[in-house]
Amino acid sequence: MKKILTHRLMLPIAALVALIVINTIARPSFVSVTVKGDQLYGPLIDILRNSAPLMLVSLGMMIVISTRGIDLSVGAIMAVSGAVALTIIDGSPTPNDLGTVLGAIGIAVLIGMLLGAWNGFLVAVVGVQPIIATLVLMLAGRGVALLITGGFITTINSAPYKFMAQGYVIGLPFAFFVSVAAVALVALIERRTALGVLTEAVGINPEASRLAGVRSRGIIWGAYAASGVLAGFAGILYSSNTMAADSNAAGLYIELYAILAVVLGGTSLMGGKFTVAGTVIGVFTIETLRSTILFLGVPSAVAPLFLAVAVVIVVLIQSPRLRSLVTRTAQGARPNTSEVAR
């Protein structure tokens, strides 16, 4: 077990370590942490803070992918939840009241959950392919967010809300604590209960799971709902960072980054086994990569190119054909099977 675990996480850990080493060599300031007042600053701290929304979304994506699904709508859900929260706070006479802010966040996250449950309904009950089911919301969601804000970018002034993404607690960004809490919560729920292993069973072998009596429909439904909740919360963090509900920019492409983080973290797109630790490492790897690209002076708009390269490398490593090609060259065997018998 120990051996398997290390094997599964070897690639993402190696990638992360390599990135950090390269960065440190290129700019020694990368690992430096400075103290200003009672707050810590430095590139590593930035990574911890900026990675929070992606962390939440990736955790949800991980659960969905484990069921053999995919959730494209997370970015749109982020936009909706940010729009809801800011519109509520904007319309409230007491935007600085903690109660107002908590209420707004609660409602926004609840809506995220409902949207996730809607995806789950389409996939688990209606039987629509996950890509398409979530594509519907991906298309419509941002439009809904724009409608909520009336087509404008709602901006607010609310100290408690601002604290979500920009505040500090014992020297570290509050957003970092949010992502730690999310990781801990997901790990607890998935691993302390049997949810994790049942989810994996459904993802690996749906028919065997059904015959073993696993309630796969409920599990799939729950996975999408969880993804919705986490995306909803990520939307809060994102909008708190800018203090604006920008329905077009919020969570743009985050579904793709999240999928990449999950895959980097060793979860196969074919579903099944997942590790929370792997996903966490995947998220940090991507965030470090982004920071590196930025540092290299590459315009952030060009960053997707590097991600594309990363995606291709990862899928090629996962590709059974490439593996069998390697083994085949090693063994000299040559079945015709790959042509037809799949």
Partner: peptide, 14 residues
């Protein structure tokens, strides 16, 4: 344990 687990439901982990 999958059989027992499925019977008990996800929340009551073996």
């Amino acid at each position: 344990v999958l059989g027992i687990q499925a019977k008990r439901g996800a929340l009551r982990k073996v």
